[in-house]
Amino acid sequence: MLDTTHDTLPARAGVGYKPQHFSQILDTPGAVRWLEIHAENYMGDGGRPLAQLRHLAERFPISVHGVGLSIGGETRLDPDHLARLKTLVGWLNPASFSEHLAWSTHDSHFFNDLLPLPYTDATLTRVADHIDEVQEVLGRRMLLENPSSYLAFDESTWSEPEFLAEISRRTGCGLLLDVNNVFVSATNLGFSPQGYMDAFALDKVGEIHLGGHDEDTDDHGAPLLIDSHGRAVVDPVWALLDHTLAKSGPKPVLVEWDTDVPDWPVLEAEAQRAARALSLVTA
């Protein structure tokens, strides 16, 4: 295990780590106080990815964010993938581990996307069982992230905030609140993002995400926002962050930018803006 002293994420600004920013993060981190990595990119046996991660972990608290566990899958969790996560988390000893309320694998086929779930009692039991298993295998508490929704399931009987709160209650897991996802889902499905936040179990939130989205329209000409992580965070999402932080108090806030990744100063400026939002909040 790496000997790092970062056992929690600070209630400061962080960014999703991209290898092209490696040197600049170490030389001019600016407002950035912690980093997040996608677990699956660091499951090779060696080489540059793991060497860079070792360097970064000496300087920064690291959040390991899984995108491939398929926690909402109808079938059992992939034991091989869970074992790989255990190896990575065991070696890195990160400040946080998180995954998504979504599925991505079916019949041993991985779709490389976060696919949606109906919010039913059956889904709740299954997801809670899978989270119990993850927390047991990893020997740590995990955070579960709210998804971006483009559609709803007729069969759903729970609202998303209540569904997540109940999973947290049953499993003891924390929640990762993606403010952009809330904005995207609220726009796409026509609910109030502030109302969502007011119903959310903010005391269980261990981390907040921000990111950029694209704009499209559906069959009826209604706005359809796509969670692309390919541009700057928009003003209404920053406003929703302020609304949320005013209720939740300071939290670790991460800016995600995964496609059309900008130069370091642009990403660092987004982190600065998150840091300013945090500076206005009292604990």
Binding site: N112, D113, P116, Y150, A152, D218
Partner: peptide, 26 residues
Amino acid sequence: DGLLDGADRPAGRRFNVYRNNVAVSL
């Protein structure tokens, strides 16, 4: 069937977001 927009109408082309995400990312 059973996939809806926010106004209980069929999801229609909203479903294509998932089709596109999978195809584009791979």
